[in-house]
Simulated assay, not measured.
Amino acid sequence: MHAQLDSKSKSIAIPVVKSKDDTADSKKIDPLTPKTENNQTFGSLNVPDLTTGVETPKKQFSLFGEEFGNPGELYKKQLDKNLENVKLSPEEVEQRNGSKTNQYLGDFKTKAESVNIVYRDHGAVDGDLIQVLVNDDVVQARVFLNSGFSGFKLSLQKGFNKIDFLALNQGESGPNTAEFKVVDDMGNLISRNQWNLATGVKATIIVVKE
């Protein structure tokens, strides 16, 4: 067995010094003593405790029942401003709103005794209505334009036969849009054209019987 020998050097004793704060005058807090006041003391100020003991209920976050603004309104003013700066050509304005002046679509010669006049809505079927007049006499008082061709047979008189197509309305999407054809009694195409009219405006062709 081997053991370490104690050092022969002597240890140094540290004397105990009594603290000045460790006096009998220090106040002792009895944890069993009931608290009589809700006041808190900060230095020489006595601040009352404002705690009511009532907890304010926290609002629970939910996506349901919340009201949100329309995000489109954030950009509406800017879009309106941009649209005001758009410059449309007269042709584009007419295409969008319909012609506000009567349209003359030409005159055509034929030796046929009669012609078939047919028409249809070349755009969306949205309720466009027309009236057809021949030499200023009403021959079709109120025609609803469908996607398919419909019309009537016209016996030609010698000389000029003026045919007017009057737009009675502009439908739901406007303007009054139509395509028409004039075919003679032998099946030959005499005229074919389209119109985009505002309400109350006419498109006119003339068929001349030789």
Rank of each mutant, 00 (worst) to 15 (best):
S44A: 10
S26G: 13
E91P: 03
Q60W: 01
G127L: 00
Q103I: 11
L74S: 12
K153Q: 12
S44F: 07
F61T: 12
N38D: 15
S44Y: 06
G65L: 01
T33F: 05
T23Q: 04
G69A: 14
D22I: 03
K27Y: 12
E84M: 08
G151H: 01
D22V: 05
P48R: 05
R142N: 15
E91M: 09
D128A: 05
K58T: 12
G106Y: 00
L88E: 06
L88H: 01
N85A: 12
I29P: 07
T23N: 11
L88A: 07
D121M: 06
E55V: 12
G106K: 04
T33S: 12
E37N: 11
N97M: 06
D126C: 03
V139L: 00
G148F: 10
D30V: 00
K87M: 04
G151W: 01
V47C: 05
P34R: 00
A24H: 07
F42M: 07
D107I: 06
S19T: 08
Y75V: 15
V17L: 14
Q131T: 06
A112I: 00
E73I: 07
Y104E: 12
S62C: 05
K109D: 07
L79T: 10
E92H: 04
A112G: 03
E55R: 10
I29C: 01
P57H: 01
E92I: 03
N116C: 03
T101M: 02
V132D: 00
L50R: 07
K81A: 13
L50D: 09
Q95P: 03
F64N: 13
H122P: 08
F149S: 05
R142Q: 12
E66H: 06
Q103L: 11
S114F: 03
R120K: 15
P71C: 00
T51V: 09
K59I: 09
T101Y: 08
T52G: 04
T51F: 11
N39S: 09
L154G: 02
K59M: 06
N116G: 10
L45A: 11
V143C: 04
S62K: 01
G65S: 01
D25V: 10
E84K: 15
G53I: 00
N102T: 05
K76A: 15
S26H: 13
Q60R: 10
S150G: 06
E37C: 07
E66N: 12
D107L: 11
Y119G: 08
V125R: 03
L45C: 05
R120W: 00
A112D: 03
T56W: 03
S19I: 01
K87P: 01
L129I: 14
